[in-house]
Computed example of a mutant assay.
Amino acid sequence: MSLTKNKETKTLDEFLAENPNVDVSRYWERCWGILTALKQKITDKFPHLSQHPSTFDRDYYTSPNGEFEGSYAAWTGNGVEWLVNSWIGNRKASILDMNTTAFLGQETDVPHLVIVFGTVPKLFCYCDYTPRKNLLTDPDYLDKYYGPEVNEWYMKLRSHPNFHWSVSHGSYMRALINPATQSLMGELNDENISIFETYLHQMVDRWLGWLDQASPVPEAERPALQRNDHIIREMSYRRDPMNKLAANVFGQAEVENMIELRMGKAQIDASTTY
């Protein structure tokens, strides 16, 4: 049997080919509501954030052929370089990619936060605390943010019988995997969305608690930290396999523009200190 036929290693195209025309509008509403509530928790913590001008005209947009639609907004300010709340896809034809992502400033070394919901039309959830240091060479950082409490919490969801692991076909995306990464797929239903909802609120609440307790990063170390942050931020968008699907409906040139918008290239260029 071909590896791509294994449910853990199927491509997005293979999942969509099985059920290409499922109306997922109701589930979009549910998942988008969860992500919006999580984003609100973050903006409550950082009330001074302002929406970046590059995203002012992306409240709602469509592809030229009307096949894809979406919304993209990003905020920036002291403590948070790039907070994203976005979705893209076709609510009438199975495919959705929705996310709330927070790339922090260099005032602390608290991990970044990445949360993604998707439908293919199976339910997909990817989430993690993206590390700011090398976990293989900095065991103190590993123990601080990925220790027994997080490990036990992680394993409980990872072993849930409703879900199986979903392997990215992008090698960079697999390189991002860390001890807090969940990349899970299951049936698209309210029960499974509710399981993820509980987990993700716990995830954000813990992360906000880390920010409350964080020690400042010395000024001299911040440029190097920012350089690493920006590389991860850029590559995680540039090398996302989802870009291939978007290129089919927006065209490659427009997708390149969208990638620069999603990663916040204008904000990176304006804020670089290294």
Rank of each mutant, 00 (worst) to 15 (best):
A175R: 05
A175Q: 08
A175E: 14
L176V: 11
L176N: 10
L176Q: 13
I177Q: 14
I177F: 04
I177Y: 00
N178H: 07
N178E: 06
N178P: 02
P179G: 07
P179M: 14
P179S: 13
A180E: 03
A180V: 01
A180Q: 10
T181W: 03
T181L: 03
T181E: 05
T181V: 07
Q182C: 07
Q182G: 02
S183W: 06
S183M: 12
S183I: 05
L184W: 11
L184V: 01
L184C: 05
M185H: 00
M185L: 15
M185Q: 11
G186V: 11
E187A: 15
E187P: 01
L188R: 15
L188I: 06
L188T: 15
L188W: 14
N189W: 10
N189M: 06
N189F: 08
N189V: 03
D190V: 07
D190Y: 14
D190T: 12
I193A: 12
S194K: 12
S194Q: 14
S194F: 03
I195E: 07
F196D: 11
T198D: 13
T198L: 05
Y199V: 03
Y199Q: 07
L200V: 11
L200A: 04
L200T: 00
L200D: 13
H201P: 00
H201V: 01
Q202H: 07
Q202S: 08
Q202K: 03
Q202Y: 03
M203R: 09
V204N: 10
V204D: 09
D205V: 03
D205P: 04
D205K: 05
R206W: 07
W207Y: 01
W207V: 07
W207R: 10
L208H: 11
L208P: 08
L208V: 06
L208I: 14
L208R: 11
G209E: 11
G209A: 09
G209K: 01
W210I: 04
W210M: 05
W210Q: 08
W210V: 06
W210E: 10
W210R: 12
L211R: 05
D212R: 02
Q213E: 15
Q213C: 06
A214V: 04
A214I: 01
A214E: 05
A214P: 02
S215D: 11
S215F: 02
S215Q: 13
